[in-house]
C-alpha cells in the first residue's frame, strides 16, 4: 500500500481522497496510518505531505470535511477537517456515512476534468442544494407524536431535515431500498458542518 502511495506521490497530480478527520492532540500520535523507514507516520503528516502534490482533494465523509463525530465535544483527540489542516480547497462529500452515489459522482467529475461548483462549506452545490425537508414526501403529512408511527412528519420529534442539505429523499439508500425518514427515523443532519453538535439528535415524543 505504502509503495503505491509513494509512487503516486512522486508522479504528482493525483486526486487525494481522504476518509477520517485529522487528529492533532498528542502531536497527532493517536493515529498512525502506516510507518515509513521504520518511523511511524501520523495521519496529520500524511495529509500534509500527500496534499502538497495533489491535483484535487476529496473529503469522503463529514469527519474528513469538518471533524464530524470524532470532533464532537470535548474533541478528545483535537480532530480538524482536512481544509483546516492543509489550507487547501477540498471537495466535501458530506454524510455520516456519505452516499456512495455522491462519492462516485464527484470522482467522475474530476476524472473527466469537469469543474465542480462548491457551496460555502465546500460541498458540491449539485449534490447538497435543497434541504431534505424541501423534497421530503412527508411534508404534507400529520405530525408524529411518538417514535414508531408510520408515514408521519417527524418535525416535532426534532427532525433536522429542515436545516440539512442533502438529496436523500430522491436517491434513497442501499440500492433505493429505504432511507432514514422512510423508516420513521428523524434526520440527524449528518451532512451538516455542525454535525453532530452537542444537542440531542431527536426526542422520543413531541408536543
Amino acid at each position: 500500500a505504502v509503495a503505491v502511495i509513494e509512487e503516486t506521490y512522486n508522479k504528482g497530480g493525483y486526486i487525494l481522497v481522504v476518509e477520517g478527520g485529522v487528529p492533532t492532540a498528542f502531536n497527532g500520535c493517536t493515529c498512525w496510518p502506516w510507518s515509513l523507514n521504520g518511523q511511524d507516520v501520523t495521519f496529520k503528516q500524511a495529509i500534509l505531505d500527500l496534499s502538497s502534490r495533489a491535483a484535487a482533494i476529496v473529503c469522503v465523509g463529514t469527519c474528513a470535511a469538518w471533524g464530524g463525530i470524532a470532533a464532537a465535544p470535548p474533541n478528545p483527540t483535537g480532530v480538524r477537517g482536512v481544509k483546516t489542516i492543509t489550507g487547501k480547497t477540498t471537495v466535501n462529500i458530506a454524510g455520516c456515512p456519505p452516499h456512495p452515489d455522491w462519492v462516485v459522482w464527484a470522482l467522475v467529475q474530476l476524472l473527466f476534468g469537469k469543474p465542480i461548483a462548491l457551496d460555502s462549506y465546500g460541498r458540491p452545490s449539485a449534490l447538497y442544494g435543497p434541504t431534505v425537508h424541501s423534497t421530503c414526501p412527508r411534508r404534507q403529512a400529520d405530525e408524529a407524536h411518538n417514535l414508531g408511527e408510520d408515514g408521519r412528519c417527524l418535525k416535532e420529534l426534532g427532525c433536522r431535515g429542515p436545516s440539512t442539505a442533502a438529496g436523500c429523499p430522491g436517491v434513497l439508500w442501499n440500492g433505493r431500498t429505504e432511507w432514514c425518514i422512510g423508516a420513521n427515523a428523524p434526520c440527524i443532519g449528518c451532512t451538516s458542518p455542525t454535525f453532530p453538535g452537542s444537542n440531542q439528535f431527536f426526542h422520543a415524543s413531541g408536543d
Binding site: L147, G148, N174, T177, E178, C180, A183, N184, A185, A204
Partner: peptide, 21 residues
C-alpha cells in the same frame, strides 16, 4: 436496510424499540 433504514449506521435503533414497522 429494510428495517435498519440505511446501512451502515442504521438510524432506527432507539431505546424502547425500533422506529421502523
Amino acid at each position: 436496510s429494510i428495517f435498519g433504514g440505511r446501512m451502515p449506521h442504521p438510524p432506527t435503533f432507539v431505546p424502547g424499540g425500533l422506529t421502523a414497522t
